[in-house]
Design a protein around this nucleic acid. Sequence first.
DNA 1: GATAGGGGTTCCAGTGACTGGAAGGTCAAG
DNA 2: CTTGACCTTCCAGTCACTGGAACCCCTATC
Lengths: 128, 128
Amino acid sequence: MTIGDVADRTGLPAKTIRYYEDIGLIRPARDPNGYRSFAETDVHKLAFLGRARALGFSVEDCRTLLALYEDETRNSADVKRVAEQHLARIEDKIAQLQSMRDTLTHLVRDCAGDSRPDCPILTDLAKG
Amino acid sequence: MTIGDVADRTGLPAKTIRYYEDIGLIRPARDPNGYRSFAETDVHKLAFLGRARALGFSVEDCRTLLALYEDETRNSADVKRVAEQHLARIEDKIAQLQSMRDTLTHLVRDCAGDSRPDCPILTDLAKG
DNA sequence: GATAGGGGTTCCAGTGACTGGAAGGTCAAG
DNA sequence: CTTGACCTTCCAGTCACTGGAACCCCTATC
């Protein structure tokens, strides 16, 4: 299977797949002409990576998760820890964004949005 | 005023202040010895930038907002548009993160987190 | 006068996770 | 034989800093 087929099957851009090989997440074989030759296991791993990335895991977390996935002697506790830490980071981020949203919502609501220069958004930024 | 004083007063790292000069957000004067010499207007601008950044505006948005702030003939509509677009991006991001959080919360809840290898998190990632 | 310290200066490289683009090799179809 | 769609590598750019090296400036102390 060539990289284009794999890109179609996994939904990952070919560039991303090459990048994942570059940083050692996958090691596809090569055909005599130099083209990457993907096996089902490669496609499977890439799909795994795609889903982990879609859940927001960092590439390094993905590396860890993939290693755990392939380690039949893993402890689920190790997986859970990675996921919990990630979840905590996400919750922090959500809280941060919600606070921004709340402030912005008020500012936007109070701004006339017309041709006059007076603007509570700028006033707020200028004097905190 | 030297960069260290300004860093203390604005809470921005000196590195960041130099960076903002680099990309043309501020233009502090220079003392004969080559040190940056900040006026109150510079400090004010930096505080403005700090608050805009804290609300999540991109540096380019900050440049726009600062220009609008300094333009006495501005239309508040222009400010409002920038803020609304930013708000929309934030809301998208929140929705995305909440969806991740929901999925992760379920997965984490269902994972035993013990010394056995079985793990619904990995199962989910492996077969989406 | 030498030195130590705590400023300041520039410039270069790295971060994360790709993404775009150039320059060139390979292959099947017409 | 050429066209076009693939594939290859490598380099640069993204965003908003951040760390570090190598060096200059100023004050205080011995």
